[in-house]
Design a protein around this nucleic acid. Structure first.
Lengths: 344, 344
DNA sequence: TTGAAAGCGCTAACAC
DNA sequence: GTGTTAGCGCTTTCAA
């Protein structure tokens, strides 16, 4: 009774073998009914196997399946910061897609550090994910080890999708176009003087949004008089704004935050400085995260359908056929940018 | 040259076998230097293996390792909604811990649906995670299939940690105590009439917070005149508040939202109804998510160190020794609850 | 120390 | 249809 003796020291869970034995069928048959795709097992056998499996509480070992099949059921998601609503929304969309397709999503945080990003990507390769979604906006500088890692994934048979250019498939956000529209609308509200709160130069998303806003605003007759640079975070918005206020910001100025989070940080700084947001200093952002509707005054912004895009990214990672969706971004003018002067 | 012929059809990545061959050592030796824990390989061999590995760009196949070792390197995190700042913060802490320990974290969304939760838990068992962290607050009703699933994990050798009671280890938040303190302080500010915005009865977190607030507030001489029930979401706060306003809410009333998100939704509803938050209708929440400092007026709340707790939960999932941390929650009184009457 | 070989749990030809 | 039997890539006794 060697089998009887073979009590493992590790906690144990029924294996396919156990199920097969209990059902009185072969391993192969059990595998076919439990995990195989195509059906070709007699009904009587199928039933017996299923009963045995449920009685034993069998769950297939995903790792073993992955090794045997040579392909895993995971989608790897890389974000800069999962606590940031931007990425939370994206992750939410990815998770929904994964759930629909019975895939697992793993997440890792890059903290916007390229080195860290490459390191994580490297580690994730071990997972042999079916797809990796890179949603950690950062600079696209020259020696890009991230690009190498991504290529590694592709060579490995995994699909790589990026937010913004870079992967084999990319979910693009028309940052420039949306920001341009926003800039133009702000100018048409009567603003003529803007301050931009951006991230470091070279960070693609930031550059695009700033360039777009500038183009639109200037086309409308305004001028971006100053650009302060920091990060995508709330604190950056607050600090940058505080600094700007220290140098003097005339009434009627409009502040463009490269993201809602930054804009909201700026709003708080404005209030802290004893100024008021709106008629005194106007503020607008980008993304339309839920919080933008909860601040007072409500934040004027450009809606980016983040959850949707997350879902798109997931589809891009798994679907065979795929065409890059590109929706036009919509501007939402709210109370943080009231019309001034004689403007409409 | 059978090896030469053996070109696989699947995209390929170097295996340990390849590395061993390239280095001219055995599989076992290669395994020992690359992935084995204890060192006992001659320096010369070690070097050759390492060089071969890096030249070939070898990365160990995590699935294969997991099957062979019988244990995976994943921590499974279950949250109700990853786009909710509460869970985003928690996830952030978990991710940090995992990163420190070289573990992978998988996340899944329960949407606060017990059935879904059980189903997901079941699916996650396939991963044979080293630990599962359940952070999806919900009711603890009688026939709890979640409890069964959790037990399944434990039997499997995985550790289960829950936010709130339930798992083998739990990260507890002193919801009752914190809320009681909040209630007492609100009463001491002069408020005598409160409305509670809670989740469904039976949802532990909600019940505790509500009970705590009520106890504290009444101890201070106030009265919770009404409790409306919905969910933990922003929209629930807005809807509930709108309903309450429809029935008439006298000036000087304080609204207690069971979470900041709900409280913020309520604030927006109050403004939409043409009332003002603060002197007219006061609002307080729970959690101290970043947004609570960005709304106007700033939200009075109880700080819950969510990111920290996420990290704690991670430690609980992996550490051998562990003692349940319990910090006292701190109340932050801000502008949304100005003192009224002759109160201090 | 190092290597041969027997698994880990499951899948997929390939025969019966 | 069903079962046999090689693997999948890696770990880990057990001898040498």
């Amino acid at each position: 009774m060697t089998a009887e003796l073979q009590r493992r020291t590790r906690p144990t869970t029924p294996t396919l073998h156990d199920v097969a034995r209990a059902a009185g069928v072969s391993l192969a048959t059990a595998s076919r009914v439990l995990n195989g795709s195509e059906r070709k097992v007699a009904e009587s056998f199928r039933e017996r196997v299923e009963r045995a499996a449920s009685e034993l509480g069998y769950t297939a070992n995903a790792s073993a399946q992955a090794t045997a099949r040579g392909t895993s059921a995971v989608i790897a998601l890389l974000v800069a910061d999962i606590a940031d609503p931007y990425f939370g929304l994206v992750a939410s969309g990815v998770a929904r897609g994964a759930d629909e397709h019975g895939l697992i999503v793993t997440v890792a945080i890059t903290e916007r550090d390229p080195e860290r990003e490459a390191r994580i990507l490297r580690a994730m390769r071990g997972q042999r994910p079916r797809g990796v979604i890179l949603a950690a906006s950062r600079a696209d500088d020259g020696d890009d080890s991230t690009a190498d890692e991504l290529a590694g994934f592709r060579a490995l048979g995994g699909r790589t999708v990026t937010f913004g250019p870079g992967g084999e498939r990319s979910v693009v956000i028309d940052n420039r176009g949306g920001a341009e529209k926003l800039g133009r609308e702000m100018a048409s509200l009567g603003y003529r003087r803007a301050i931009g709160l951006a991230a470091a130069e070279g960070v693609r998303t930031s550059d695009d949004r700033l360039a777009g806003f500038t183009a639109g605003f200037e086309a409308g007759g305004g001028e971006v008089v100053r650009v302060l640079r920091g990060t995508f975070e709330r604190e950056s918005g607050a600090q940058l704004m505080t600094a700007a206020l220290g140098d003097g910001v005339p009434t009627g100025t409009i502040v463009f935050g490269l993201s809602d989070v930054v804009a909201i940080g700026a709003m708080t700084a404005i209030r802290d400085a004893g100024r008021t947001v709106g008629a005194d200093i106007a503020v607008c952002g980008f993304d339309d995260v839920p919080a933008s509707r909860d601040v007072t005054p409500r934040l004027t912004t450009v809606r980016v359908p983040l959850t949707d895009l997350g879902y798109q990214a997931f589809r891009a990672a798994v679907d065979v056929e795929w065409t890059q969706p590109d929706a036009e971004l919509e501007v939402f003018v709210r109370d943080s940018t009231p019309p001034i002067g004689g403007a409409s």
